[in-house]
């Protein structure tokens, strides 16, 4: 279910819809593809509504998490499907299929049966099948979610390259934050059918505009209180210094877990806490610290010393990394 959903995408841009399952991201794609019907609202391509256009004439193609390659057709027939439906001559189709196969890096597999393809190859072929008709809009609905990590990384790069090369306007749907950031020019965070943030990945990652969006990009320390003269009187943890001296009134400030530091002695903006858990994550050390009523996650870059459960520490919040979010 979507409510108050509005998004505009520029020509040639790759936009990611990022949201948890059930947030309505797939619905958006199905509405554009014409698989589901819009109750009210409008969808426009180049300023013109497409709602009255037959779904198969819209020039928007969709690729799903499963490749949905037709099992009774071979690779060549699968890729050529869209063109064949448009009545394109077989000789032309043959050439286009060949071109597509080299574009996706799998030349010469025309006669292969669908059942003989690996998961990654299947998705590459499905991508070729979607692109062969030269659609105005390419929609990818979690196309990589069922693949192994290494295959997935390769395909992320491949899709992004192909998208840039063809300059095709693309909507990519995923629930994976790092995938979304790696793949998009802009990303929209979709929560409960509502776009809570829409901006460049690096902006949304470092400065999410509201609490809900911030939580979704991994922020979990929020300080709420009365700001004045460069200080925030946070109800839960006490006074914290801010960089922004002009801020006055009730407000919420947040900080990313990577920017929080842990130290033994008290300094400016340090809060006394107790270590709850300490997990080695490879590229970082993840520490849960209880600060009075609050609990926060801290990500320390490696190498870092391990902390013991129940250890008393000070959590330091550098003022330059504190940013304001809408409640």
């Amino acid at each position: 279910m979507l409510k108050d959903f509005s998004l505009s995408i520029n020509d040639g841009e790759m936009v990611t819809l990022l949201g948890p399952s059930g947030s309505g991201k797939s619905t958006v794609l199905k509405l554009i593809a014409g698989i589901e019907q819009l109750d009210n609202g409008d969808i426009r391509f180049d300023g013109e509504s497409i709602l009255q256009t037959e779904p198969n004439k819209r020039g928007a193609v969709l690729m799903f998490q499963k490749s949905y390659l037709f099992p009774f057709l071979n690779v060549e027939e699968n890729i050529g499907f869209g063109l064949k439906m448009q009545g394109v001559a077989p000789s032309v189709i043959q050439g286009e299929v060949k071109r597509m196969l080299s574009l996706i890096g799998l030349p010469g597999i025309e006669k292969r049966k669908v059942g003989q393809l690996s998961g990654g190859e299947g998705q590459r072929v499905a991508l070729a099948r979607a692109l062969v008709t030269q659609p105005k809009l390419l929609m990818l609905d979690e196309p990589l979610s069922s693949l192994d990590t290494s295959v997935r990384m390769n395909l992320q790069a491949a899709i992004r390259d192909i998208q840039r090369e063809l300059g095709i306007t693309t909507i990519f749907v995923t629930h994976d934050l790092s995938e979304a950031m790696a793949m998009s020019d802009r990303m929209a965070i979709l929560l409960d059918g509502e776009v809570t943030a829409y901006d460049k990945p690096e902006t949304l990652f470092h400065r999410p505009p509201c609490v809900r969006s911030a939580k979704f990009v991994g922020v979990d320390l929020f300080l709420e209180g009365e700001a004045s003269g460069g200080w925030l009187d946070a109800a839960d943890v006490g006074r914290v210094r801010l960089n922004d001296e002009s801020k006055v009134g009730r407000s919420v400030f947040a900080i990313r877990p990577e920017h929080i530091r842990i130290q033994k002695e008290e300094t400016e903006n340090s809060l006394a806490g107790v270590v709850q858990s300490c997990l080695f994550r490879g590229e970082a050390l993840e520490v849960q610290v209880r600060l009075g009523e609050l609990t926060t996650r801290v990500r320390l870059p490696m190498p870092a010393p391990m902390f013991a459960h129940g250890e008393n520490v000070f959590v330091q919040l550098p003022a330059e990394y504190l940013f304001e979010v809408a409640a």
């Binding site: 698989i35 779904p55 193609v61 969709l62 799903f64 949905y68 037709f70 869209g82 979607a130 929609m139």
Partner: peptide, 14 residues
């Protein structure tokens, strides 16, 4: 799996 039909629709089949 009706998605095969959806897939065909999304590839431009009537």
């Amino acid at each position: 799996d009706e998605n095969y039909e959806h897939q065909a629709l999304a590839l431009g089949a009537s």
